[in-house]
Write a protein that binds this DNA or RNA. Structure first.
Lengths: 121, 121, 121, 121
DNA sequence: GTGGTCTAGACCACT
DNA sequence: GTGGTCTAGACCACA
């Protein structure tokens, strides 16, 4: 559970939580049946509201990244390698389609985008 | 002035206006000293509040895309080709850095990103 | 009549006219009984509205810098050197009091202001 | 939060707010991470519209004096002494350049300005 | 409760 | 008629 909150970011805190945890699950850094910390504990450590943590946990559960057992806590779903890959691909594809649309709206071709990416690093 | 508002989008209306107009200026579709429609007229045509149009126009003026003259109207700034290119590059670079950071957070390398872009089209 | 209009300035155009003409009168560059150009002529030359010029001329007359004779035109008032000096002093003093108040509001002493002025040039 | 609104002033209310608060921050009267009153509360106390307060707060945020967090409130930026000094210098320099230009337009030299300042107090 | 966005009016200064 | 400012509401997402 290595999470960093940026209070001044435009991105809502609950979504920062969601993004970082889902990312760690997808990358296999958080493995199946791993027990997430109780929301109150997490809230204290991250210095955010309990409600905020709850919202992030709910969204993680809704999208199948974790499951909760009343009275026992929240656990990372035990997903197969294939399932994780599919989730990752879906997330990335959806974002990439939006991004490309945006760049094209500014008059860039796919080649322009790729060239710019290459020149940036 | 070909603008489309999506009321169901997450993106605020004033920002949709800003994005589309700044994009048209950058692409040269709106040229220097072009007179934008009066904010009240634009508000009626776009079916949004005058305030919303005003907010978009303000941001456009703040970033140097347009200039306003009380009692006369709002006009597209007469920018050189170089200035337009610089504005475009700045906007694109800022977004691209965020995007790449996001993709890397999901474990993608720059090569992965480029390959995926190529395979998408 | 050497006047420059800045359309993008915050200062209203009629006031730019007023400031520049009154300044020229105070400095003696425009002498008594000099005939100002007709407002329509001035409007064309300066590329501003007739109404704008009229407003500036009216304000000049109201403050005693010029006088108008119906059907004949507007003329610079024939003021004595002493009267011009008094006008100048009054204008400068009024502005300076406001300015000093502003600087003091930001925590500057009179010494600070003077030092800053000296260091600026 | 000691603020006075002058409804009869030429200066817009939102700018009076901006000027007074930024001034207090620059002078160190409002320190870093100080929580500003909620915009609705401020609006009631100052007897102005919420929108007007919002506009002032927005400009303060844009210039780096404060930062806002949705659902939490608005806070004074935690700026170093150096950063505060730089902000102050920038604001003062910009105004002073305009002022000097005005006085020179009336035929005053820098010496004249300084002498007049000294004689005023 | 907090800030962010939006509406449908209004009045004013400027052109 | 133009932009600039302001009001008094409202709804939403976030904490």
């Amino acid at each position: 559970m290595n999470i960093k909150i940026n209070n001044t970011s435009d991105k809502p805190i609950y979504q920062q939580l969601f993004d970082q945890i889902s990312s760690q699950i997808i990358k296999g850094e958080l493995k199946g049946d791993f027990c997430l910390p109780p929301i109150r504990t997490a809230a204290v450590e991250l210095r955010v509201s309990v409600i905020t943590v709850k919202k992030a946990w709910e969204e993680l559960e809704r999208q199948g990244f974790i499951y909760s057992m009343v009275g026992r806590g929240c656990f990372v779903s035990d997903l197969s390698h294939t399932e994780l890959l599919n989730m990752r691909t879906k997330i990335i594809t959806e974002k990439m389609e939006k991004d490309v649309e945006y760049y094209k709206g500014l008059g860039m071709s796919l080649d322009d985008i790729i060239k710019m990416l290459e020149s940036m690093y």
